[in-house]
Design a protein around this nucleic acid. Structure first.
Lengths: 155, 155
DNA sequence: ATGGGTGCAAACTGTTTGCAATCTG
DNA sequence: CAGATTGCAAACAGTTTGCACCCAT
């Protein structure tokens, strides 16, 4: 299920002028072994590493996340929580989209190859190299709608 | 070009237990007269109001933006700048999507009715009431790609 | 040995909140 | 008049940055 072995990724990093470090290897591995559909915040990832007994600072976590997004290996998700989440970017397969309830934060995932196709087409015709393509649907789930019979204040 | 006249919106607010205030009216009007394709951050909006001689606090701007998103009148955009932008939500017409270059931040808009149709279908079958549907494409524009012959560091 | 990477702590930015005063219905 | 809304200032969360030390290449 791994896309990059440690040394292939090391080569990839070196080719771009970056260096392979234990922290970077460890972080990529966490994402590569993460169950499909899970996503981590910077804080989540930091805790996870700490619990694993790793010695790593939150700054390095942030710096590595940026690097991985920049290299196209991770995708950055803006869900309902107010902070970013990250997951492995699987451009061709298992690529999915998100449906978020703006009231309770419930998040559903779904796949839809047509969207990726359309997005790819748009990017091509604009000369962009696609790193990520996400359809974000924001709405109100049926539970919240039924709970809303009485007018409620946002927040 | 206005969707809500001041008193129709007042009625809408009252029907939901909210009150119409000069600040809220003013903010909605700004968005309703904003040129299609423009979007404002909370700060932008606050400056705009201040320059117009309005007396309004940044907190109220934030609170009103939340309310408008919650009511489905605005859509919240996560572009490349690190803070949120808002624009009028035009569900049926002029609805568009964004293509963002993660390196230079250049943003292109495009329309694609099929996406909205697919999104709507997904939401329906999950029991969601859609407030917003946005396809976000993140990539690297051709200018940045050609500028990238030498490896560059992120940030 | 060179210069990229890390950890730490401090700074920063955008956003939220508590509270007293004010305005709307 | 009751209760929703505002402005202010202080608090907050997540993220970024400067710098001295460390480690890959």
């Amino acid at each position: 299920m791994s896309f990059y072995s440690d040394d292939v990724w090391k080569a990839e990093l070196n080719a771009r002028g970056y260096r392979s470090t234990p922290q970077r290897q460890k972080i990529l591995n966490i994402f590569q072994t993460l169950t499909q559909g899970n996503h981590l915040s910077a804080e989540d990832l930091h805790d996870l590493l700490k619990n694993d007994g790793e010695r790593i600072s939150l700054s390095t976590v942030y710096r590595t996340l940026h690097l991985l997004v920049y290299m196209g290996l991770l995708r950055e998700l803006e869900l309902a929580e107010g902070h970013k989440h990250y997951e492995l970017n699987r451009p061709m397969r298992d690529h999915h989209h998100h449906l978020v309830c703006v009231q309770c934060g419930q998040t559903l995932e779904f796949q839809e190859a047509n969207i990726d196709r359309i997005g790819q087409g748009q990017a091509d015709s604009s000369g962009y190299h696609v790193l990520d393509c996400q359809l974000m649907l924001y709405g109100i789930c049926s539970d919240c709608r039924s709970r809303n019979t009485a007018p409620t204040a946002p927040n």
